[in-house]
C-alpha cells in the first residue's frame, strides 16, 4: 500500500516536470538568444542597428543596419496578406457554407495537404514556376508566401464561420436578403474576430518563413526599390550569412534573430488577445 503511494507520488512529480518542460524551453530560448544577440545591438547601437540602411559586414568599418531587411520582411508579408487573405476568406466561406459534402471531402484534405507541403518544396516550385515570370523579386516572394499562408487563414476562418449560430443566417434570409448577401453582410462580420485571429497567425507565418522566401527573392541586402526587384528578409539574412559569419558579424545575425523573435512575440500576443475576445 505504501509502495503504491510512493509510486503515485513519483509519477505525479514526473508528469509535473514534463509539463514544466515547455516553460523551461521558452526561458532557455529567450535567454540564449538575448545573451548572444543583445550585446551586439549594444556595440552597434540600437538606432544604427534598427534604422541603418546599410548592411555591409565586409566594409571597413563594417556597417550593420537591418532597416532594409525589416522593410523587406514587411513588404513581402503585406503582399502575402493581400494575396492570401481574400482567396483564403472566400475559400473559407465556400468550405463552411456553400461546398457540397462530396466536394468537401476532397477539398478539406487538400487544404490540409497545402499546409503539410515543406517550405523547400514551395521554394523549388517557386523557382521553376514563379521566378521565370516575375524574376527573383518581392512579387515572387509575395505569391509563394500568399499560397503558404492560405491553409492557416482558411482553417481558422472556417471554424470561426462555422461557430456563428445558424439563427443569424436564417434570420437574415427570412428578412429577404439573398444567400450571399447574408453570408458576407451577416455571417462573416459575426465571425470577424476569429477571422482576424487567422490573419494575424498568417502574418506570423509569413514573417517567420525562411527557406521558400530566400529561394525566390534574390536576397540583395539593400533598400527594396521596386516590387519587381529583389530584396532580403530578416530570416533570409540569418540563413544566408550565418554559414561564414564570425565575431561581431555573427552576433549581428543573432541580433537579427532577436528582432524577428520580438516581432513574433508581439504578433502572438495580439493573436491571443483576439482569440480571447472571441470567447
Amino acid at each position: 500500500m505504501k509502495k503504491r503511494k510512493v509510486k503515485e507520488n513519483f509519477m505525479e512529480g514526473l508528469f509535473f516536470i514534463a509539463a514544466a518542460a515547455s516553460i523551461f524551453a521558452v526561458v532557455l530560448i529567450c535567454f540564449f538568444l538575448m545573451a548572444n544577440g543583445v550585446p551586439a545591438i549594444g556595440k552597434i547601437g540600437l538606432v544604427k542597428f534598427l534604422f541603418g540602411t546599410e548592411w555591409s559586414p565586409s566594409d571597413i568599418p563594417p556597417l550593420y543596419g537591418i532597416a532594409s531587411m525589416i522593410v523587406g520582411s514587411l513588404y513581402v508579408t503585406a503582399g502575402a496578406i493581400i494575396i492570401g487573405v481574400p482567396i483564403g476568406l472566400f475559400t473559407a466561406v465556400f468550405l463552411s457554407k456553400i461546398c457540397p459534402t462530396k466536394l468537401y471531402k476532397i477539398m478539406k484534405p487538400g487544404v490540409d495537404l497545402l499546409a503539410g507541403i515543406p517550405s523547400v518544396v514551395y521554394g523549388f516550385f517557386g523557382m521553376a514556376a514563379v521566378v521565370p515570370i516575375f524574376g527573383n523579386s518581392i512579387i515572387s516572394g509575395c505569391i509563394i508566401l500568399g499560397i503558404m499562408i492560405l491553409p492557416t487563414i482558411i482553417g481558422i476562418s472556417e471554424s470561426a464561420i462555422r461557430a456563428v449560430p445558424s439563427e443569424y443566417y436564417e434570420g437574415s434570409v427570412a428578412l429577404g436578403a439573398g444567400k450571399y448577401r447574408t453570408l458576407y453582410k451577416v455571417v462573416v462580420p459575426a465571425a470577424k474576430s476569429g477571422i482576424l485571429a487567422g490573419i494575424v497567425l498568417g502574418i506570423g507565418r509569413a514573417i517567420g518563413e525562411t527557406m521558400a522566401v530566400i529561394m525566390v527573392m534574390g536576397n540583395q541586402a539593400r533598400m527594396p526599390v521596386s516590387l519587381l526587384k529583389g530584396a532580403r528578409t530578416l530570416t533570409g539574412n540569418i540563413v544566408i550569412e550565418m554559414g561564414y559569419a564570425e565575431g561581431l558579424h555573427r552576433e549581428a545575425l543573432i541580433a537579427t534573430g532577436v528582432v524577428l523573435f520580438v516581432f513574433i512575440l508581439i504578433i502572438n500576443l495580439s493573436f491571443s488577445a483576439l482569440k480571447g475576445r472571441k470567447k
Binding site: 540564449f32 506570423g204 525562411t210 534573430g257 524577428l260 493573436f271
Partner: peptide, 10 residues
C-alpha cells in the same frame, strides 16, 4: 509561434 529559423539559431 516561434519560426523555425529562430529554433535553428537557438
Amino acid at each position: 509561434g516561434i519560426p523555425s529559423i529562430v529554433y535553428g539559431l537557438f
